[in-house]
Write a protein that binds this DNA or RNA. Structure first.
Length: 293
DNA sequence: AACAAATGCAACCGCCGTCAT
DNA sequence: GATGACGGCGGTTGCATTTGT
């Protein structure tokens, strides 16, 4: 005899969440905290399965979430972590406060993959595409063949984008915009030597990725639904919570992004149990900031 | 202006390890 | 120990929006 099923799957609602459902779920979590997801739908008066509630909360409603596009700094961290961890989105997300695995996964699939390909980097292996194509060759031959393409890549991207190459320090690292040549022949040998699992984690603070303002920023400056949606919660003006302006494209290029905030330890995240401010708002029916509720 | 294609993202699906029964 | 739900995860889908023709 095992546990009880999490929910009857009959009559459950699917699809996009409504503001009313969100309000019910938030109210419930505020009152009861995150406990047994199985019980949440019934107690909160929702026709959803517990799993759906958990996903909605963790991916969208949690007050400590950042909304909006990833900053350049975050994007660079994602790339670097992905080179070490692969598609372990939750692990990657754990290095980026306020970001969810789903969000990072989506961003990777829709933005970063394309950028890397444009730059001649294989997003799966983080190696130059020419290496991937010749994966079955002997390492020494690969080394001989890869140096020239990377040099060309560096020159090509010098003026317009961040360039990455393989180094002895990690799987992925920038190539200086000054176009300095690859420092030695070891970069490739090391990369071949390490598997994804073996490469030690790099301290994010030690990242030396250099990014130009053009390519990276332009692609992250597109306004989107998410930025509109983010205003849904952002507009609530939680008194104790400092909403970072990551979704504001106008700030992406002026060093007000998350990188600086993280580096300056200014990030103001809510403790998951500290909902007093949100609770106040939710219980204040007259609050004009709750128009969407 | 109308339509088609491409894009972005929230949500779902199914798998797996853990743990309650 | 066996069973089966829970919680977490990564892959995929569906649909609204944006862009191109």
């Amino acid at each position: 005899m095992g546990r009880q099923p999490c929910c009857d799957k009959v009559g459950l609602k699917k699809g996009p969440w409504t503001a009313e459902e969100d309000r019910k779920l938030i109210n419930f979590i505020l009152t009861n905290g995150q406990c047994c997801w199985r019980a949440v739908p019934k107690l909160a008066g929702l026709l959803r399965c517990g799993k759906s509630c958990r996903l909605r909360w963790t991916n969208y409603l949690r007050p400590d979430l950042k909304r909006g596009l990833l900053s350049d700094y975050e994007e660079k961290m994602v790339i670097d972590l992905h080179s070490q961890l692969g598609n372990r989105w939750s692990k990657i997300a754990s290095h980026l406060p306020g970001r969810t695995d789903n969000e990072i996964k989506n961003h990777w699939n829709t933005h970063i993959k394309k950028k890397l390909r444009k730059m001649g980097i294989d997003p799966l292996t983080h190696k130059p595409l020419s290496i991937v194509e010749q994966e079955d060759e002997e390492p020494v031959k690969k080394l001989q063949k890869i140096q020239m393409p990377i040099q060309e890549l560096v020159e090509k991207n010098l003026e317009e984008t961040t360039s990455y190459c393989l180094t002895k320090d990690s799987n992925i690292k920038n190539v200086s915009r000054l176009g300095e040549s690859l420092e030695d022949d070891q970069f490739m040998a090391i990369n071949l030597e390490y598997g994804v699992e073996d490469v030690p984690l790099i301290d994010p603070e030690s990242l030396e990725l250099i990014c130009s303002n053009s390519t990276m920023s332009s692609s992250t400056s597109t306004s989107s639904n998410s930025s509109n949606d983010s205003s849904f919660l952002k507009d609530l003006h939680f008194p104790d919570f400092e909403w970072s302006d990551y979704g504001n494209s106008s700030n992406d290029n002026n060093n007000n992004g998350v990188g600086n905030i993280i580096e300056n330890n200014m990030m103001s995240l809510w403790d998951i149990d500290d909902f007093s401010s949100l609770d106040l708002l939710l219980n204040d029916e007259s609050s004009s900031t709750l128009g969407l509720f």
